[in-house]
Simulated assay, not measured.
Amino acid sequence: MGRPRTESVAGAVAPAEVALTGDLARPARLTVPDLPAWPQHRVRFDCATSGVQHHRFEGPLLHDVLSAVGPLFDPDRRKDRLRFLIAVTGADGHRALLSWAEIDPDFGRAPVLLAAGIDDTSLERCGPQLVLPQDRCGARYVSGVNTIRVDGRYGPWA
């Protein structure tokens, strides 16, 4: 199953879009060319379980991108954000789930990227990639990200 392509008048393929949805003050749609608006980070991925692979990813932190669209947690209650989950879906149907606490600098501070490039190659045509360098061999990496949903309905206080 592939991503449907959107053709422009000239026949060129339009950049893949990512829908930021859910419990957000400002839901948005982004493309890879939008991602340099945030500070860029580089992480390296090394996998030894299926033969050594080395890749470099570049893009903004997922936390920075999602913070810009206003997650709807109570800013006066520090722990309120701990009930928020982030569901990421790729064009091929692959999904990954993260907690807000995992990416929040006040808690887990994981350097999770919404990568705009891999090994100095842009991901503009296929969409950004979710990159969790702390995961063993990219278990939660999602290619061609097309939806990121933030959901705060979880936890006993929800």
Rank of each mutant, 00 (worst) to 15 (best):
E124T: 14
C137L: 05
E17K: 10
D151Y: 04
P15L: 04
R77A: 15
Q134K: 11
V13D: 11
A14P: 01
V69L: 05
A28L: 06
G108W: 01
P105F: 12
P105V: 12
V9M: 12
L61I: 05
V145E: 06
A14L: 12
P36M: 07
P156S: 14
P128G: 05
V69W: 01
S122E: 05
A25H: 09
L132M: 13
L132W: 07
C126T: 14
L72W: 04
R29M: 05
V43Y: 04
Q129L: 07
A87M: 11
V13M: 07
D104C: 07
C47G: 13
E124Y: 04
S99H: 10
L66K: 04
D46P: 00
T147E: 14
A19D: 12
N146T: 15
I86A: 05
P111F: 06
D80N: 12
V145T: 08
E17H: 08
G90Q: 04
P133F: 00
V32F: 05
D64E: 11
F57C: 05
V13R: 10
D135I: 03
Q134P: 00
G11A: 12
F107H: 15
R136H: 11
E102R: 06
H55G: 10
D64V: 01
G108K: 02
E7D: 13
G138Q: 01
L114W: 02
I118C: 15
T147K: 09
D74N: 15
H41T: 12
Q53M: 13
L130G: 03
W38E: 02
L62R: 02
L123F: 06
G90R: 07
L113N: 03
C126D: 15
F57A: 07
D80R: 09
A12L: 13
R136L: 12
V150K: 01
L114T: 01
L97N: 10
V150L: 07
A28P: 02
A68W: 07
V69C: 06
G90E: 03
C126A: 10
A158P: 08
P156Y: 12
F107W: 15
A10Y: 10
Y141V: 07
G152N: 03
A158R: 11
R78N: 11
V32A: 02
V112F: 03
A16W: 02
K79I: 07
G2K: 14
T6E: 14
P15D: 04
W157F: 14
L85Y: 13
G138C: 05
R56D: 15
G59K: 05
L30S: 00
S8I: 10
L130N: 06
S122L: 09
D120T: 09
V52G: 14
H41R: 14
G144N: 06
A37W: 06
A139L: 11
R77S: 13
M1I: 11
P105G: 13
A139H: 10
H41N: 12
K79D: 14
Q40F: 04
P60W: 02
T6H: 13
P60A: 01
R140H: 07
A110N: 10
G152E: 02
G70D: 03
I118Y: 09
D23G: 04
R149L: 12
A19E: 13
F57E: 04
A37F: 01
D46A: 11
R3P: 00
V13S: 09
A115M: 04
A68T: 08
R136M: 09
A91Y: 07
R136A: 12
